[in-house]
Nucleic acid binder design. Structure first.
Lengths: 257, 257
DNA sequence: GGCTATGCTGTGGTCCGACCACACCCCGTG
DNA sequence: CACGGGGTGTGGTCGGACCACAGCATAGCC
């Protein structure tokens, strides 16, 4: 086993055992090196990997924010992963679009069902309002729908550039996916959007009429939001599917199923 | 920007531009260091990250297999990512189960539809038999169903330990997901299974009767395979969903939706 | 006494130079 | 012609050194 892998398994074991917690800090690189009987460069390689995997965040200086702080950011490494494998041309854009359709339509359906239940029972207490419904529940939640609505408002600005519009668009989709409350799916969604951002921007010139496209996208977003809020699960899922596939077809980025 | 990030962006650019191809090799660490005007340790950190992301595979010695060879292995880094974030307790097992249900039921549905079309049109030519149906198509394909069937055969062996059985089980599910032909979803599936393998094994004692469980799982696998082969998409999807949720409930690993 | 400035300390970031283990490849040898 | 041993280039590891940065404690000033 390579020395840097020693550090990785040490960190994983300590994480699983609770000796390392979120927000805590790894021992200094020099300390860790001596502790494991290896050199500092080896420790550094491991820390880099952990950083690339979104498990730690490193910073220079001193204080509580300095050093290798344990975080949980699955989205950024997923983005890097997708970007790199997209660059190798062994990850077809069509597969990504297909995955987006699958995840987002599911998320929209879940979100709508959440609202349907909530509306029917009118049990809108603050804490744990949606507990027990989804699997992860805890995080995410219906509050994100307000965020999504706010994003739609900002997207009404006619002065937005294609890039600005698309960034808000991406945020809207990610927020919507977050409502379903599954952190894994939300993270995958977020990274899918980030990873393909460059490709989407490069395809904007393919659109025959940007202004008309924007008008259409805005309307579709509003319809999706309304369907979710009304608790119409099937309709929300179908709208999302059409929305995504329609855009990629128009931009000629891929010919989804 | 940190120096090792310089290497990462250099590699990504060269990949996208086609100057680096799958199976090709990165320049030597010493060469790359001088070329980018940085030190070898910095290059090494970047190579480690690339290795952790499944983009390169390093080996000592000489010859075509030595050095940093460009590969495309999205599954192993995804596994590491999931394992580590699972260890931080910020990735609920329930979310993983939910994701498995979503991806696998979709894959089963797609696979069944593939067979339904193929059976109806009887267009069973060898190359490109399923082209144009799925988004990615190309890879995966119906041939994997034979692999899945072979795995089921090996799982009939009554002398298998729980661990051996579960490994074959995992392979079966991954192969089934591969039939749908979406490399991204197949990779995610494969890493989900690997990442939770340890947790599943730890939960085996929770099962009230291992032998009875195995009998049930075998029957469910056969039923799923039959449904896919018969082109019964809805039935295949439902069977997969019940199969997965049933097991996790029995093992008390999570209480899926 | 309160406030400011300055150095100390510990962190990661980077670099150098060296040595090791390994695997292929070539050339000398029989 | 067959075979074996060194040559060569690869990554793997190491120790040590210096830098930039951020916080903090302290000494000094007002």
């Amino acid at each position: 086993m390579k020395n840097y892998e020693l550090v990785l398994s040490w960190v994983e074991a300590d994480l699983a055992a609770g000796r390392l917690r979120l927000g805590g800090r790894l021992p200094g690189e020099r300390v860790l090196a001596e502790q494991l009987g290896i050199s500092r460069p080896s420790v550094r390689e491991a820390v880099r990997v952990l950083e690339a995997l979104g498990v730690v965040r490193t910073a220079t200086g001193s204080g509580p924010e300095a050093g290798a702080v344990i975080v949980a950011e699955p989205a950024s490494p997923l983005t890097a992963l997708l970007r790199l494998h997209l660059a190798t041309n062994h990850l077809p854009m069509g597969d990504i679009v297909q995955t987006r359709v699958l995840l987002e339509s599911w998320a929209a359906r879940q979100a709508a069902e959440l609202f349907a239940v909530e509306g029917a029972a009118d049990r809108k207490q603050g804490a744990g309002g949606a507990s027990g419904v989804g699997a992860g529940s805890g995080l995410g939640g219906v509050g994100l729908l307000g965020v999504a609505e706010g994003l739609l408002g900002r997207m009404e600005d006619p002065g937005l550039s294609p890039e600005e519009f698309h960034l808000l668009d991406a945020e809207f989709h990610v927020a919507l996916s977050g409502v379903a409350g599954n952190v894994l799916i939300a993270a995958v969604m977020a990274s899918l959007r980030s990873a393909i951002h460059g490709y989407v921007m490069a395809a904007v010139p393919n659109l025959s009429d940007w202004d008309a496209t924007v008008v259409g996208l805005r309307a579709e977003h509003q319809a999706i939001l309304a369907a979710v809020r009304a608790g119409e699960a099937d309709r929300a899922a179908r709208l999302v599917t059409d929305h995504i596939q329609g855009f990629y077809r128009a931009a000629r980025l891929a010919s989804p199923d």
